[in-house]
Design a protein around this nucleic acid. Structure first.
Lengths: 228, 228
DNA sequence: CGGAATCTTGAGCGGCTTCAAAACCTGTGG
DNA sequence: CCACAGGTTTTGAAGCCGCTCAAGATTCCG
């Protein structure tokens, strides 16, 4: 990757993957990466495949999902700019990817292939630490999600998830926070069925708590939503 | 820790935390640790507290659990000899422990305090890689558990979990595999209610698939169990 | 414009949880 | 040795949350 691209990345996206690394070192690391653009609905990595590259999302939206043995799709996470996946590549004899990454929109990615990231991680041990930190955060998020699944009701989970997503991936407008997400995606993250999701969102819209159109939800007052 | 203790540990417990490290280095690492014994029901670390030590379980059984906001206890994992927890300590500005570790029996632990493990991880980068690998495995296990929770029935989850636990922590007898676990713990791991667990195990015992007494289950034929 | 994706609404029901109550086992201390 | 308290397990009965299925309306994309 050439220097001008590196500089543009430095400015455009902040990621925990490169925390606690000097700007000079960061450039060395980014220069070893490649740039890649993918189209909507394109599959970037497939669950189970041997991890062979680390990806950093610069722009766009990606869904990270896995397929259960019965063929149902389980949404693990929605990735937003700054998020990293394929972290397992940093290990010798890496395990397989945990899930399948599919682009929900056009995406720009920064990609380190296996040999590049292995070399870099030897030179910059901070990369391994950052990977550990990120993975622990995913684990904590997952534990919370599971915790809610077994102890809260569907409306509570849905409200919480909606507010959370809005916080991570929402645009702030004068009238509230707006987030691009379908009922199916939101229900998937909250572990709430598609029909139940539709009904609950309908209720909330009638109560004036949110305003929704196809693929988009606007939240007026997050606090009231959580008080359900 | 003195050399003779170190040698006895080397022989008694194998852990992925010290994989890909030479025996000499392993001794250096173990010498920086401390030995600790805890009694049944003793709390070793508490969820949310800043991670300040890494623990390796030498002998005994530990439950790793977290408390939901409603006060219900959620069992995250049963730790067996060779397992490690408190891994987050290896990071600067570590996050809090994910859950609370409680001894289910008398336990022997190997403990590295924060400064010791930080020093060591600078000298032996393999420690950080091993930590990442272990954390990724926990994450994968959790994703599978969640996946089953939303797509399988209670009997399927319970059967699978029972076989899994037997595999990890069971004794092999001529008549089958025997594992020490209460209905509550097993149900907790499988996300099945206590009463449902009791009923299902009762059914299986009447079918001759298992034999159970208080706090102990013996599995005759794991395959038949999974075919439920 | 056609087809695919998204969303809505209604009806039914089924697997699991919840609640209540009692039987059972086991280690401990008097 | 015995009794008791605490933890563990069982069984029955009831109820409900949210899923499943069916069918249609709506909106968007190519």
């Amino acid at each position: 990757m050439d220097l001008s691209t590196v500089k543009s990345i430095e400015l455009s996206v902040r990621t925990r993957f490169l925390d606690n690394i000097t700007q000079d070192d960061r450039r060395v690391i980014l220069e070893k990466a490649q740039q890649r653009s993918v189209a909507t609905r394109e599959v970037i990595v497939r669950g189970g495949e041997r991890a062979s590259a680390v990806y950093l999302l610069r722009s766009g939206r990606i869904k990270y999902s896995r397929v259960t043995e019965e063929g149902k799709e389980l949404l693990l996470w929605l990735l937003t700019p700054g998020d990293v996946f394929g972290i397992a590549t940093i290990l010798n004899h890496p395990p397989g990817y945990l899930g399948t990454a599919t682009a929900l929109s056009e995406c720009d990615l920064v990609v380190w292939n296996e040999s590049a990231i292995l070399d870099l991680s030897k030179h910059f041990p901070e990369l391994c630490r950052n990977s550990l930190r990120i993975t622990l955060e995913y684990l904590a998020a997952y534990a919370r999600r599971h915790s809610r699944l077994v102890s809260e009701t569907a409306p509570q989970r849905l409200a919480y998830t909606l507010v959370q997503v809005a916080h991570r991936a929402g645009r702030v407008l004068p009238t509230g926070v707006e987030v691009d997400i379908t009922n199916e995606q939101l229900g998937g993250l909250a572990d709430v069925g598609l029909f139940t999701t539709s009904r609950l969102l309908g209720d909330w819209e009638r109560s004036g708590l949110i305003h929704k159109e196809r693929g988009r939800i606007q939240i007026e007052t997050p606090e009231k939503l959580l008080a359900t």
